[in-house]
Design a protein around this nucleic acid. Sequence first.
DNA 1: GATGAATGAGTCTTCATTCAT
DNA 2: GATGAATGAAGACTCATTCAT
Lengths: 185, 185, 185, 185
Amino acid sequence: MKKEIKQQSILLFEEKGFSETSIQDIVETLGVTKGTFYYYFSSKEQLLMDIHLSYIDDLLEHQEKIQQTQHSNREKLIQLVALLITDIANHGPSGKVFFREMRHLCEENAVEVKRKREQFRKNLESILREGVAQHEFRQGIEPEIVAFAILGITNWSYQWFNPSGEISAEHLADIYSDLVLNGIA
Amino acid sequence: MKKEIKQQSILLFEEKGFSETSIQDIVETLGVTKGTFYYYFSSKEQLLMDIHLSYIDDLLEHQEKIQQTQHSNREKLIQLVALLITDIANHGPSGKVFFREMRHLCEENAVEVKRKREQFRKNLESILREGVAQHEFRQGIEPEIVAFAILGITNWSYQWFNPSGEISAEHLADIYSDLVLNGIA
Amino acid sequence: MKKEIKQQSILLFEEKGFSETSIQDIVETLGVTKGTFYYYFSSKEQLLMDIHLSYIDDLLEHQEKIQQTQHSNREKLIQLVALLITDIANHGPSGKVFFREMRHLCEENAVEVKRKREQFRKNLESILREGVAQHEFRQGIEPEIVAFAILGITNWSYQWFNPSGEISAEHLADIYSDLVLNGIA
Amino acid sequence: MKKEIKQQSILLFEEKGFSETSIQDIVETLGVTKGTFYYYFSSKEQLLMDIHLSYIDDLLEHQEKIQQTQHSNREKLIQLVALLITDIANHGPSGKVFFREMRHLCEENAVEVKRKREQFRKNLESILREGVAQHEFRQGIEPEIVAFAILGITNWSYQWFNPSGEISAEHLADIYSDLVLNGIA
DNA sequence: GATGAATGAGTCTTCATTCAT
DNA sequence: GATGAATGAAGACTCATTCAT
C-alpha cells in the first residue's frame, strides 16, 4: 500500500503539482481513505521527501557506478548524459516532481536533498576537470559552468521530451553527448 | 496601484510560489485591502496571466529586433543567448515565475502563453536552420533539439545563477555562446 | 459580531468544555459561517485568551478599587470575598471557563494570565499580612496559605453554587466572610 | 498490563488532559499497540470511568473508617481534612484527573460517580451536623455550605500544593484544620 | 494476548471571492 | 477608488474504533 500511495502520488504531483494535489485526490484514485494515507506517511511533506530521496539516491548510485569504471572521462560523460536522459523514460514523472517541487520541503529536508543534488553536480564537475587535466577536453573551459550547462540541457528535457515520441531516449542522448563533446572539445 | 500590485506579486510569487502566496499576503505588503486588489484584477489568475504576458511579450519584442538585423546567424545566436542571460539580471523574478507557474493559468490563457513561448522557440530554431543553410553551423545538426538544448542551458541558469555574484551576466553569456557555437560548429 | 462570538463561546465552553466545543458549534448557534469567526479571531486559542484577559482584568480592576479605600483590612477582606462570590452571579460562565480551560492557552499566553492571576492572589495576601500587622487578625497565621484557602472556598463555589437558587450570592458571601474571619480572628 | 495502562493514563491525563491525550499517546509510552488497549478497555471513556471509580471508592472507604471510630466530631473533622490533603501526596495525579475530567464521562457513568461524590460530601456534612448537635461547633453554622467550603479549601490545594515543597502535607493539614475549626468554633 | 491495517467522521484553519457602502 | 464584513468550499491532519489474523 505504501508503495502504491507513493507511485500514485508521483503521477498526480507531476500532473497537477504538489500544492494542487490533495490527500483526498491521492487516496481517491486508490480507493482507500485518508486515514490510510496517514497510517503510512506522517505528512504530505514527508511523502514528498520520500519521493525526493528515492530519486536522488538512485541517481547518485548510478553515477557512482559510472565514476568507478576505468573508462575515459569522455566516455564517462557520454554515459552520464545517457543516464540523465534515459532516466526520463524510466522515471519521468519522478524527475519532474523532483525538479519542480523541492520548494515544498521543509528547511531541514531541503538541506539534505540539496546536499545530495550538489553532490551529483560536483561529481559531474570532477569528470570535466579530470578530462581537462587529461587533455580529453579543451583547456580553459570552466568546469563548474559547463556542468550547469549540461544539467540545464538534460533537465530541461523533462519539460518537453516525450520518450515515446519520434525520437528515442538513446538518440536524444547521442545528440546531446555530441553537442556537449563538440562544445568542450 | 495596479503596477505596484503586479510588482509586489512577482516578488512574492518568486519567493513563495503562486499557490503559497495569498491575496492577503500581497495586499498586506502594500498596506491596502483585498477589495483594492479586486478593483484592479478580476482574479488571482488574471494577475498571473498579466505577469506572463508582460514577460513573454517583452522577450519576443527583443527577439524580433535581433532577428531583423542584417547580422550573421552566428551573431544573432550570440545576441539571443545574451538576451536570455542578461534578462535574468534585469527581470530575474519575472522569469522564475514565468517558468514555474504557468501551470496555474486556465486552459485558455495557458494556450495563448504557450503559443507565444513556442513562437520564441521557433524563432530560435529558424536562426539555427538558416545558419546551417548558410554553412555557418555544422550540417546535420537537428535545429529543433539544439534549440531545446540552448533554452535548457539558459533557462536552467535561473536556478543557480546569481547576477551579483562573481561571474557577471555578460561573462556567462560569453561562455555559453562559446560553448554552443563550438558545439554546433 | 465579535462580541457576540465571544459571548456565545463562553456559554458553550462552560457547557461542553473548550476542546469539546468546535468552531462549527460556535458559529452555528450564531447563524454565521466559520469564515466569519476567523475574520474576528485568528485562532480558537486567541479567542480563549481574549476571554481570559477580560475576566482577570476585570477582577483585578475591582480588587484595586477595594484596596485603595480607607477601610480596615477586615472590611476589605469582606468586600473581596463578596466580589468573588457575586462575580459568579454576574459572570458565572466566564469564571468557570477561566478556572477550567487555562491549560489550553499556549505557553506565552499562559504565562501572562498566570502572572495576573498571581497578582490577584498576592494582593489578597497583602491584605491578610496588613491585617495581622494591625492586629485585626490573629498573629501567627500564614498569609500565603490562608489566601489559598480563601480562593479555594470561593473558586470552588463555581462548581456547585447556583445564584438563582435558595441562597443568594450576598448571603453566601456573608457566610463565607464570617467563616473566614472567625477562622483567622 | 491493564494496571500499567491505567497508571500511565492517569499521568498523561493529568499532564495534558483527557481530550488532549490520545490512545496512541498512552500505548506509545508503554511500547504496545492500540489493539492492546482495546483488549483491556472497551473504550477511552471506560478507562476514565475506571480511574474515577478507583479514586472515589478508595476515598469513601477511608472516610467510612474515620466515621466508624468513637472519636469526637472535632477529631473526625481533623482526620478528614488530613485524609484529603495527604491524598494529594499519595495519589496527586488521580485527584486532579478526578476533579477535572468528570465531564467526559457519559451520562450514565457520570451519575454513578456523582452519587458517590455527593455521598462523600453528605458524610462530611453529617459530621458537621453532629458536631453542632453535640455543641462541639458553633450553633447556627450551615453544615451544607461549610462542607462546600472545606472541600473548596482542600480540593483547591490540588491546584497549587506541591507535597515535596517547603510545607509538608501534614503541616498543611494542620493549618487547614486549625483554620476551619476556628471558623466554626 | 496482541498486532497491524484500515476507517470515517470530525477538527482547525485558509483563502479566493463577493458586495454593500 | 477603496474598504470591511462575510461566505463557502476545500485542505491537512487527528483519532477513537474495528477486525481479521
